[in-house]
Design a protein around this nucleic acid. Structure first.
Length: 661
RNA sequence: GCCGCUUUAGCUCAGUCGGUAGAGCACAUCAUUCGUAAUGAUGGGGUCACAGGUUCGAAUCCUGUAAGCGGCACCA
């Protein structure tokens, strides 16, 4: 007999061979039905898997939502694989995990990749499998038997996978009914019928590389979203619709902020309104860096290729660089445009080398350090075309880039200061964030000793700033650093919970070495400065994209391209409206007037859709009383106040957060 | 770059079997002067992404190219 202790403190004795399912049944039929899986000594297991000794047992039901969702999604993935093999014989199965909102499965199709049009049939087949309530049973196979079985079935991917698991290890296999099996660590629900057939939806298909490696075969991935019940699924689908409404590409067009077109694909055409937002951010950032002891510079857009060779970019980064011949193009109709004999130049993909060149001008003393050089640096990177995405991933972008040249003993303090600066700035925009440390990648410059030092300094600074806690999402990411330095990364969380990497600080000993930057120390000798690369917005383009989505287009007053519209009800108020407009403009408010011969309903609707924060309505009454009726975007009630008071109030409201008292 | 899908008026989208292009919104003109999310009428607007091919005839079928979208890989 085994002693099984339950969460309420009671202990039950069960015979050998019993499983959590037996315990559930003994407690009551309700629980037996509700139980989905078991936690045995803390480990999530199948309900039907026998105990191996005395154990602490917790039964998992739909109330344990995280566990239940994970189980259901994993099962949906298996059912998906079984359905696809039933409908498309010859399709190989590979791998299919759960995701944040559902599941996917990667297949190697026999003759063609799957398309969206295949999804309804696959969904229907999945529902048949769920309705058949096939038991899912766990079996233990030897590695050799399993590989033999996969090869016999023509499952070469599965065989490859199994072949790489440790020799002699027993592998778990789950059988669905009597005929279909997949290699899997489990656990699973007791049977397919535990899934709610109305709680999933196949969402899309895509390509994906086998084992995530570009060098491998392209598989065909089917994505689904999966939940415990239809209500959850519907809520999720609604969330997706809401997210689509705040897509910055859609809002950017609707609000006339910017556009993209094929002739300059990957580069942004900023319209007047979008550029207002940009300029407001630029002004904000300049105030921040001026106060933090940075000095702004501007450096060349194009430099000789030899400079990029020396910095190391030519070797490690060339595939992302735009290269330009230093040659006048031929004006002949026949023949090549350029001879290719001229020198090569390149558009800068980064600002760092140019900042080192500024540092190198003149002799620097240890007294000059730290030297913080800031640039709104316009960079060009020839990104893989499939990577481009609205404002988030572009080929021309402007970084809020700075390089801090400092002594070894100043690094930690500088990084700490940066953490504080980033914290204040992100909070001004209403973001919460997570900090991550990206460690050395496989392809890198510099000695392991330097990498040890650099990684430790960044870690130390975050620890000292008290930010290396779960609350700040602290996490270390092996292999994710840049080729010249480890990175601290700031990942913002927006209003609907998505995360975006924007800020970074990297401590670099490689570039100062390669470009021979030095300062004279107290001892009169030459020393190598350390260079901290850092950004807070990341790029203006991406940051604006994130802001649009975060605020769903309703930018805070200080950032709104048009802060107020004065709208008339009758043309008799035109003169007064123009007066109100002039006064607001004089107070520095970005204001427009709408004197069109349209109904006030029409004007309210139009400016609301344009996300104008304040609509000042003036009719006959306001003109006579010299007041305005202010309608704030998203509010039902309006405020009435004298014009002068309204101007003063708006002026105060429109202040940037760093300028408020 | 890789896989799949898409590309028709400024925007959102119809367009059947291959037979000479359609709506709503927007825009222009006219009327309307109205109190908080669409006033009405009239009108103009298209090399059906681009280049080839099949056909008596192509928005429609085929091939290629480009861009967009969803992923993968890569990344601020």
């Amino acid at each position: 007999m085994f002693k099984i202790s339950l969460p309420d403190g009671s202990v039950r004795e069960v015979p050998r061979g019993s499983s959590p399912a037996d315990v559930a049944a003994a407690i009551g039929p309700g629980l037996a039905k509700a139980a989905l899986a078991a936690r045995v000594d803390g480990e999530l297991r199948d309900l039907g898997r026998p105990f191996e000794g005395d154990a602490a047992l917790e039964l998992v039901t739909a109330r344990d939502e995280a566990d239940a969702l994970e189980l259901a999604r994993h099962d949906f993935a298996h059912v998906l694989a079984e359905a696809v093999q039933a409908l498309f014989p010859g399709t190989q199965i590979t791998f299919g995990p759960s995701t944040d909102d559902g599941f996917y499965y990667d297949f190697a199709p026999r003759d063609r990749p799957f398309t969206d049009e295949d999804l309804p049939a696959i969904e229907a087949e999945m529902r048949r499998i769920i309705a058949a309530d096939k038991p899912l049973t766990r079996e233990i196979w030897s590695r050799a038997d399993l590989i033999a079985r996969w090869l016999e079935q023509g499952e070469s991917f599965k065989a490859e996978w199994a072949g790489e698991l440790p020799e002699g290890e027993e592998l778990t296999v789950y059988r669905s009914g009597s005929d279909w099996l997949d290699m899997c660590r489990g656990p699973h629900l007791a049977s397919t019928g535990k899934l709610d057939p109305a709680a999933f939806k196949l969402t899309r298909v895509s390509g994906a590389y086998w084992r995530g490696d570009q060098a491998n075969a392209m598989l065909s991935r089917v994505y689904g979203t999966g939940w415990l019940n239809k209500k959850q699924l519907d809520a999720h689908l609604l969330r997706l619709e809401e997210a689509a409404k705040r897509d910055h590409r859609k809002l950017g067009a609707e609000m006339d902020l910017f556009h993209l077109q094929a002739e300059a694909h990957g580069s942004v055409f900023w319209h007047p309104k979008g550029y207002k937002v940009w300029r407001e951010l630029e002004a904000y950032m300049r105030r921040a860096i001026d106060a933090a002891g940075y000095r702004e510079v501007k450096t060349p857009q194009i430099m000789d290729a030899r400079q990029w060779e020396q910095s190391g970019h030519w070797g490690k980064y060339r595939e992302n660089m735009f290269v330009i011949p230093d040659e006048v193009p031929s004006v002949e109709d026949e023949g090549a445009l350029v001879s290719g004999k001229g020198d090569w130049m390149a558009l800068k993909p980064m600002n760092c080398p140019a900042h080192v060149l500024i540092f190198r001008q003149g002799i620097k003393s240890y007294r000059d350090l730290p030297l913080r050089l800031y640039e709104n640096g316009c960079c060009h990177r020839n990104e893989p075309h499939g990577a481009l995405h609205g404002l988030m991933r572009v080929r021309q972008f402007t970084q809020d880039d700075a390089h801090i040249f400092c002594r070894e003993d100043q690094i930690v303090a500088e990084v700490q200061d940066f953490c504080a600066l980033a914290d204040r700035i992100y909070k001004d925009f209403g973001f919460t964030y997570a900090i991550k440390l990206a460690l050395r990648p496989e392809q890198r410059f510099g000695s392991d000793t330097d990498w040890d030092k650099a990684e430790n300094e960044l870690r130390d600074a975050v620890v000292r700033a008290g930010l290396a806690t779960p609350e700040y999402g602290w996490e270390e990411l092996p292999g994710e650093g840049a080729f010249y330095a480890p990175k601290l990364e700031w990942h913002l969380t927006d209003a609907i919970g998505r995360t975006w990497q924007v800020g970074t600080i990297q401590s670099d000993r490689v570039l100062p070495e390669r470009l021979d930057a030095h300062y004279i120390g107290e001892d009169g000798e030459k020393h190598r400065p350390v260079m901290l690369h850092r950004a807070i917005f990341g790029s203006y383009e991406r940051f604006i994209g994130i802001l649009i989505e975060h605020y769903a287009g309703k930018l805070p007053l200080w950032l709104a391209p048009v802060q107020a519209v004065v709208a008339t009800i009758v043309s008799d108020a035109d003169g007064y409206a123009s007066e109100v407009e002039a006064n607001l403009r004089l107070a520095g408010i970005r204001v427009e007037s709408d004197l069109r011969n349209e109904k006030i309903n029409y004007k309210v609707r139009e400016h609301s859709l344009q996300k104008v924060p304040h609509l000042l309505v003036v009719g006959k009454r306001e003109a006579e009383e010299r007041t305005v009726a202010i309608r704030i975007l998203g509010e039902e009630r309006q405020r009435f106040m004298p014009m002068d008071e309204a101007v003063a109030w708006l002026k105060g409201e429109a202040l940037a957060p760093d300028l408020r008292a």
